[in-house]
Design a protein around this nucleic acid. Structure first.
Lengths: 342, 342
DNA sequence: CTGAAAGCGCTTACAG
DNA sequence: CTGAAAGCGCTTACAG
């Protein structure tokens, strides 16, 4: 009777344990487990059974040390709280999740020091690449220091045009909103939006103005109503618009929260939506847009898709490719607040 | 003149490079960099300068291979989309972020297969521990398979009482809500909440009933109005309550969205809040609670703190401690919707 | 087809 | 105080 090799007890099993149990060398065990062809079928089976029996999971650290590839990626976000980061992060996670890549999540909380600290930690862990997720569309300074791995910026582009940035076409989004309202037969369109310090606010307004100009129209009120990104501004501004420009028949709002405020005020004032006045929002934030009265038509920036693209581009770069920056279009998600009135 | 050691060009620098540049052995370089005492001060300085010059970052994989500790932790969530996971995740990230620990984020999308896949990957990467974040308070089955590292469950407890679970006291939360309304002088209190299939709905209702009973009162309408977790149910139920029980002077809602719907209907019906009817929500979801008319008092489950505690408990367990399950209280965040009327 | 040996980048006794 | 050597768990030429 052959010596029965002992099965290790509490230690995490290693290749050596598997090899011993299968009665082969660790080299052969390695080949069998990695599906190399130079292994006899019966040997392979024996190794695989041993591995199964021990619940052997190859040590990714050891592999990474050898190969120089860790199969990990760093996801650097500036605010987890913000609702823009999450869908992007999900998209990126999806792009990676399918394969063998794990994601390190780091929230820098908008602090450059903390960001540097996280980057250092990630590089220490030898991530294969980095995705930097911004929470507003304004360009941000590129990662500080010499980064020896590919980096892809999402939503917020890097201010260095040489970097790869995946962004939303907010000018196009503004145009889209106006074109939808025009298609619904609207002609007197006001624009209520958030803080002018945000590139997103300016871009959307620019797109809106351009689309109106193309139709030979101008914004009701003469210019955008800039304010804050919340409901109370939506309410206040909607009041003003209706009071000063009772002919208004549509309002394009720079965010769903603003639109929600506008909707509530129009309701208070007895103006039928969409009958008398159509309202379109921006962000398509379901919790807001899908539960208002009436439910809100909104521009969707396809953030999840944006994150997925960023993930793919990062892969390409890791594999030696040279991806380029891209700007993606948004889309209209139609609900009751802009129903064309027959 | 001494030989000038060459500085490596495009390769990521290793300890060997640092040692060469500093003119010492890698053993000495290692000690210098790790702050060991057995190194002459001048030598240490030389090594540190060399490391600085090369932007040397020690390879965490190599270190992990040696020490058996990777300084990484897996964060397993079932739905990133859900608003409960995010604050918990932030809290956990905070708990780790300070130190040297990096977090792997995995979203299982509520799919057991995917969860298993993620766990396998994480164990392959030799995480030191796992945090499992649930998105509802119902107990979940423990992680499948033999997990050789500590696991802490948050929000959703493991169904195995031997596991460590950090949860919210939802019964207590329901009590808290009612006690607050009683303190505001209310006596005719209705409870509108979400799906009875959710433990959270049942627990909060139980706490509410208990608190009312202690005060010698019973729920207006005789029992909770179970429905769905959204605004439209809040609206529909508020209508019913007011119609059938016009004496109602307060409504405890099982979520802020429900409360928002109730608030809107009370406004439509011309019932003053908080004058005639007080409203309290649950979740303290700022985007809803801080922007309604009037702004909504709500129960806050301290989710971020919950995540931080989970992180700390995981640390303890990793360090050989034996943490126990804990249930944490919520708190009232007061806004205008329950202002005591003088 | 199989296995001994070298080596990925580091740390840690152990000599000197 | 310093350095040669062993070793963490694995993969990959290279002999046999």
């Amino acid at each position: 009777m052959a010596n029965e090799p002992e099965i290790p007890t509490n230690r995490t099993p290693t290749l050596t344990d598997v090899a011993k149990l299968a009665g082969v060398s660790i080299a052969t065990a390695s080949k069998a487990i990695n599906g190399r062809s130079e292994v006899r079928a019966t040997t392979r089976v024996r190794v695989l059974e041993a591995a199964e029996l021990l619940s052997f999971a190859p040590n990714a650290l050891a592999r990474g040390l050898l190969s120089g590839r860790t199969g990990t990626v760093g996801l650097l976000t500036s605010d987890l709280e913000g609702r823009f980061s999450i869908p992007i992060l999900m998209g990126a996670e999806d792009a990676f999740g399918a394969g063998q890549v794990s994601v390190f999540l780091c929230d820098a909380r908008g602090d450059a020091i903390r960001e540097k600290h996280h980057v250092r930690a990630l590089l220490s862990r030898r991530v294969d690449g980095l995705i930097v997720v911004g929470s507003r569309t304004d360009a941000r300074p590129p990662l500080a220091g010499n980064i020896p791995v590919p980096v892809v910026y999402v939503y917020a582009p890097s201010s260095d045009p040489a970097d790869v940035s995946i962004t939303v076409d907010n000018v196009g989004g503004g145009q889209l909103a106006i074109e939808h309202l025009l298609a619904c037969g609207r002609r007197n369109i006001a624009h209520i939006t958030g803080e002018p310090g945000f590139q997103a606010a300016r871009d959307r307004a620019e797109g809106a103005a351009a689309a109106l100009a193309s139709a030979g129209l101008s914004m009701t009120g003469g210019r955008p109503y800039y304010g804050t990104w919340d409901e109370s501004w939506g309410r206040a501004a909607a009041h003003m618009v209706v009071e000063h420009h009772p002919e208004v028949d549509a309002i394009f709002c720079g965010s769903d929260q603003i639109a929600r405020g506008a909707l509530d005020v129009l309701r208070d004032l007895g103006r039928n939506v969409p009958g008398t006045t159509s309202v379109i929002g921006f962000d398509n934030w379901e919790v807001i847009s899908a539960h208002s009265r009436p439910r809100l038509t909104s521009i969707d920036m396809n953030l999840k898709q944006l994150g997925a693209i960023a993930g793919q581009r990062l892969f390409e770069a890791i594999d030696g490719g040279v991806p380029t920056s891209e700007e993606f279009p948004s889309r209209v998600v139609m609900r009751e607040s802009t129903l064309p009135v027959g």
